[in-house]
Amino acid sequence: MKINKEIIQRYHLGLCSPNEIAAVEDWLNSDQADMTFLQEPELKQLEKTGWEELSSRFNLQSSPQIQEPLIHTKKRLFPFNWQIAASIIVLLTTGVYFLFHFKAENDSTKGSPLLAYKEISTKKGEKLQVILEDGTQVWMNSESTLRFPKQFTLNQRMVSFSGEAYFKVAKNPEKPFIINSKRTKVQVLGTRFNLRDYASETSSAVVVEEGKVRFSGLKGPEHLILTANQKGTYAESVKPRLSIQSVYSTTKYINWKDNKLVLDNLLLKEIVPVLERWYGIELKVASPGLTNKRYTGSFENPTVHQVIQSITFALKSRYQQQGNTWIIRN
């Protein structure tokens, strides 16, 4: 019986027939089994380096590389013995398991139980920085949720998101980074941008600081290609609409991640949800005539008292605090 890689794989998985087992063991005892066996410290290192080294040594099919620091060790030849063979069999069995495990994971879809996902959320008044396994950095604003696989597949890096976040995507031309939200889809290779897509708001926006972004709404085939200092907006209405504009500076759109609050010519009714998210408070406008008045101001690491005091001074109004509730009135 001719010994080939398929029979060796079945042997280490315990799937061979009695005749095949006898043939493989005869082959292992023969001079045809040209193997290099390792000492115990080297076996541990071989286990760390994973399947790729095993597959190249025994001419088995390859699997995705497991990125671990490699330590080059000197290999020596020793006479064959079954203790060493047992160690090799354990390593091979482990390698075959990971081969099929990773293959199943890479072929799986979002809902597959083999692809482990993690979900991170921020509450009102919270901000958080997350670093994904590919090196991509995500700064999450308040009331945001990021869902991502613990390990990306071979051909793409796909995450789900709602809220607001600043993304610094690690460059990888072979694996596009894709963000799916309730309304939009963002696709990049490596860039820096801010995405704002709150379900409670009627539009979504992307502001690009560096690189190139493909931005589209989930309703309709249209898409935008955005570059540095450009803002794309998707308005979801009876007729969804994409629009693009140039921005003089991206600073006011991304300052929030450095705890700098920028309110640029906003109506008071637009400011209310911003401050509620930022501070985790409840803000009420008791005088309807104030809701459509505009305010501009910028603050660095401000307290809620400083911001509301500035707003009421500019709008010639007053405020009061009742626990975690703040009330603005004429």
Rank of each mutant, 00 (worst) to 15 (best):
N19R: 03
E20S: 10
I21V: 14
L28C: 12
L28Q: 03
N29T: 07
D31H: 15
Q32S: 13
A33N: 10
D34V: 00
M35K: 02
M35S: 02
M35C: 09
T36L: 15
T36P: 00
T36W: 08
T36D: 01
Q39G: 09
Q39Y: 06
E40R: 08
P41C: 02
E42G: 06
E47N: 10
K48R: 13
K48Q: 13
G50N: 02
G50K: 01
G50Y: 01
W51G: 09
W51T: 14
W51Y: 12
E52A: 15
E52D: 09
L54W: 03
L54E: 06
L54Q: 04
S55F: 00
S55E: 05
R57M: 07
R57E: 07
F58P: 04
N59L: 14
L60Y: 05
L60Q: 05
L60V: 12
L60R: 04
Q61Y: 05
S63P: 07
S63W: 06
S63G: 15
P64I: 03
P64K: 07
I66M: 12
E68I: 15
E68W: 05
P69K: 05
P69T: 03
L70Y: 04
H72C: 06
H72S: 11
H72V: 07
K74R: 11
K75D: 00
L77Q: 15
P79L: 07
P79H: 00
F80W: 11
F80C: 06
F80I: 00
N81F: 04
N81W: 01
N81I: 02
W82A: 13
Q83S: 13
I84K: 08
I84Q: 06
A85S: 05
A86C: 03
S87W: 12
S87K: 09
S87V: 08
I88Q: 00
G95V: 01
V96T: 01
V96Y: 08
Y97W: 14
Y97F: 14
F98W: 15
